[in-house]
Design a protein around this nucleic acid. Structure first.
Lengths: 342, 342
DNA sequence: TCGTTGTCATCAATCGATTGCAATATACCC
DNA sequence: GGGTATATTGCAATCGATTGATGACAACGA
């Protein structure tokens, strides 16, 4: 374990002042003899000198570092988002610090503070979906000294750049598609109690039904958290209905459902049709391949970075920007077309 | 977007010196009147004062922050490792900065520098598996001014704490199990060309065969990257052999294999048995459930943090510590027991 | 000899916090 | 009232780098 080498030490060794060393190593326009330049660079290299960014950003007031807070890095969707975002940041010379909060507003707040006080130039926030008490978090975000972009989900009523897919539209598209395929009794399995996105997807589901005059039947609306076991538990009740199709509002929910279906010896789409959400596990073999509403994390990342970039360049407008992206329906093999004899 | 508030400003507002404010806000033992204490805290709160960690760690020379570099955060295994590690760090009051390199040694190096110069107190490295040119990286790691712990994989010949599962043992266990189930023609699909771990797993596979006197047949050893499409491509050749079982040296490889198997109408384990690796997608429905060698990322994280913790406390030995963990065989339904009539 | 120009390099302030030591004010004691 | 304790608070250096302002010195012309 080597010691940290400082500018001053390098300066001492070459017999010049710290200023000169700094100037040379940063390739600033300055009048230092070619001879000394070489010497400085050589000594710096030999000593494995790396400038202390902490000291540097203290005076420069920028770190070319961005932060990201996701609720759970172990989720495929967020992992993918984080991956895309990091690549994008790096392209522009920013490092991205990815943090995972566990989903509670308190942890979110703590991480946000950590990032801010560590001098990131901006933060991407995937927070505020769960209905934990987020007043403190909201307060903090609204007083942030750096730009923030909310991604995928938002804290309600907060003036802040937002980039997200239209969850209501996604729910609508999924349901609409099932209707078009001749389904009339369509159940849904959503996380409406604890998630804004879940609520919106549910709203879309209901709008699609309403639009064609189908009844909104509370007995067909089921609740599940965004975790496989939760959906697995909830699925039994779903299967006890007379629904011919289910709209599962996330991949994990679909996976839980599938597991239960499989155990009960039901086949898809023979016994029941399924439309899933996210499509984030599309590369994994499913039997059958799941028809799903896709929201590409890469696209989300691209737009989020765009917003951030503008703000960082001071080109952001006074008002918050709101980017709403349209999800896509990816048709595969999990929906049966019913002959229409309703 | 609020302005950043500094100690000095708070001091000015309360009419005391910055030192006093610092002392009070950090709850240092000092003799400041109760009255002023209250005043300071109130003003600080009202102004949303958050200490600038950058300035602070400059003088304190510690940031209570750790860094992690993984090759690809989108991989389930690394995502899970990152998640576990972050939780563990937080328990001890450390924030973890997760970065994802993309797998090239150059990017690893760049990220490592970023982390170090940003003042993390230590780094966890999941690097050095791919055979890119890692001389510079190795050089850098060996001159690091902070503790480093290599996790899951290591740069060969580098004196540095290491925590990893015994990959050779994993390959051995998988193959041994297949042999015990009566298989004699056992193929393997590994990433031996570009991965140390792959090489070791292959070595384990060969040891198991050798141990029972089975021939090591190069025609049964196939190469695949750790990505689904790569395995998918390679799988056709595997299926053209007379193997009754395949050892797939990662979950992704197994998934690619399964996809191809499925397309060819082959059933598992009826037509061919499969043992996979990682078991990181265990919660996902596979048909059938995959028998696999499991290496729990949580365990890896726990030990890695343990090493780091020791180093940070100065309790680390002079020599590097090396923790080798034994993987576990998780038996499920993808292996057929053959009646022994070899 | 003085002034001018040009070249090479350094000074010193600054970023925002921490902290050992010094300083001031008040109280207390004989 | 003189002197010591004690309670409060401030000074100034420090961490490691950046940068606008300045200085030193040589060569050259008049």
């Amino acid at each position: 374990m080597a010691n940290k080498v400082t500018l001053k030490q390098i300066a001492q060794e070459v017999g010049l002042s710290p200023s000169s060393v700094s100037l040379v190593l940063n390739n600033r326009p300055c009048r230092i003899s070619e001879e000394n330049r070489k010497l400085i660079k050589e000594v710096a290299a030999r000593n494995h000198y790396v400038p202390n960014q902490i000291a540097r950003s203290l005076v420069m007031r920028e770190s070319r570092t961005l932060g990201l807070i996701v609720p759970n890095i172990e989720s495929r969707f967020f992992a993918s988002l984080a991956g895309s975002l990091e690549k994008r940041c790096r392209e522009d010379g920013y490092a991205l610090f990815i943090t995972s909060s566990g989903g509670s507003a308190d942890d979110d707040l703590e991480l946000l503070r950590q990032l801010v006080t560590r001098g990131v130039d901006g933060v991407f926030l995937v927070v505020g979906d769960e209905f934990s008490d987020d007043r403190a978090l909201r307060e903090e975000v609204s007083h942030l000294p750096i730009p923030a972009v909310m991604v995928d989900r938002a804290i309600e009523g907060l003036e802040c750049d937002k980039v997200m897919f239209d969850h209501e539209m996604g729910g609508y598209m999924a349901t609409r598609y099932l209707i078009e395929q001749g389904h009339r009794r369509i159940a849904c399995l959503v996380n409406a109690r604890r998630s804004n996105t879940g609520r919106k997807r549910l709203a879309g589901y209901e709008r699609a039904l309403r639009e064609v005059g189908l009844p909104i039947d509370a007995r067909l609306e089921f609740e599940s958290e965004y975790y496989i076991p939760s959906a697995y538990e909830a699925s039994e009740a779903v299967l006890a209905t007379d629904a011919t199709a289910v709209f599962a509002s996330s991949d994990n929910i679909a996976l839980g459902l599938l597991k239960r279906l499989h155990e009960m010896g039901k086949s898809i789409p023979g016994d029941i049709s399924v439309v899933s959400y996210d499509n984030s596990a599309a590369d994994v073999l499913f039997e059958p391949a799941l028809t799903a509403i896709e929201q590409d994390p890469g696209v989300l990342a691209e737009h989020a970075f765009g917003c951030m970039s503008k703000r960082l360049a001071g080109r952001g407008g006074r008002r918050a920007e709101e980017v709403v992206l349209e999800p896509a329906l990816i048709v595969k093999d999990s929906v049966l077309e019913l002959t229409k004899h309703n």
